[in-house]
């Protein structure tokens, strides 16, 4: 059975919005595809990260307050090298801000990010929560879920284009991408509501290992969920 290994980054520190469901969804989608998805928890900032064993890093949303501890540790790790070499990483919600250049906090202080994404962020005074529906081109697919925006984001290379929702900053852009690092504001959990993205990631990772899968995966519940969400978006009351 093909195998991939996922590094679940700092589960107790990046712990918000039920996104741990995305980790479970990766395992479930892998199972449907006949792929053994092993998840390794990277518990603490001081713990070594076994990049050579990891096919995908997953960063779930967390409080910006912990980033001041995470950024120095990640800067001193081989994360940049891993990503430059084409390693896969998925960052959801606020955790995407870790990879940008700067985060301007509401109190006026500036937090220097990892600088891997050409992106800056400005913390919002008021939280913005809403549904999110957007399109990506590579691979071509539509994704939907929710977004809880703690910061407005300005990215030079967005991950997608919004169909509904605020996205990065209400200008039609959503998330950011650099090589195989994907940042999205979309949650739901992301990979529960959009298992086709999980399937894409698993297929891409296996392709890198010269393994091509010939399986059709049933995502019928998620497809019905997408339709139900879009129906809600279409009919939702305007202000």
């Amino acid at each position: 059975m093909p195998e991939i290994t996922v590094g679940w980054m700092y589960p107790n520190l990046l712990n918000l919005h039920g996104e741990r469901g995305s980790v479970q969804a990766l395992v479930q989608v892998g199972k449907k595809m006949g792929v053994d998805v092993t998840v390794v928890r990277i518990e603490d900032i001081d713990d070594p990260i076994p990049f050579e064993k990891l096919d995908l890093l997953i960063f779930l949303p967390g409080e910006i307050a912990v980033f001041q501890h995470l950024i120095p540790a990640l800067t001193n790790s081989d994360l940049s090298h891993y990503l430059e070499q084409g390693g896969y990483a998925l960052a959801m919600g606020t955790s995407g801000l870790l990879f940008g250049k700067t985060i301007l906090r509401e109190d006026g202080s500036v937090l220097e990010g990892l600088g891997i994404l050409d992106m800056t962020a400005k913390e919002r005074k008021y939280v913005w929560g809403d549904d999110l529906h957007f399109r990506i081109n590579d691979p071509a697919m539509e994704l939907a879920g929710s977004q809880i925006m703690m910061a407005d984001v300005y990215a030079s290379e967005p991950f997608g284009t919004t169909i509904y929702g605020r996205g990065n900053n209400n200008t039609g852009t959503e998330g950011a991408r650099y090589k195989n690092l994907i940042y999205t504001n979309c949650m739901g959990p992301l990979l529960v509501k959009n298992p086709w993205l999980a399937e894409y990631l698993i297929r891409e990772i296996l392709l890198k290992k010269s393994i091509e899968l010939d399986v059709n995966v049933d995502h019928s519940i998620a497809e019905s969920s997408l339709n139900a969400t879009l129906q809600f978006i279409e009919n939702k009351p305007k202000k």
Partner: peptide, 14 residues
């Protein structure tokens, strides 16, 4: 309040 949204992600924290 506005905007209403269809998020149930908190259930995945349970």
């Amino acid at each position: 309040f506005y905007p209403h949204y269809a998020g149930t992600f908190y259930f995945f924290d349970c």
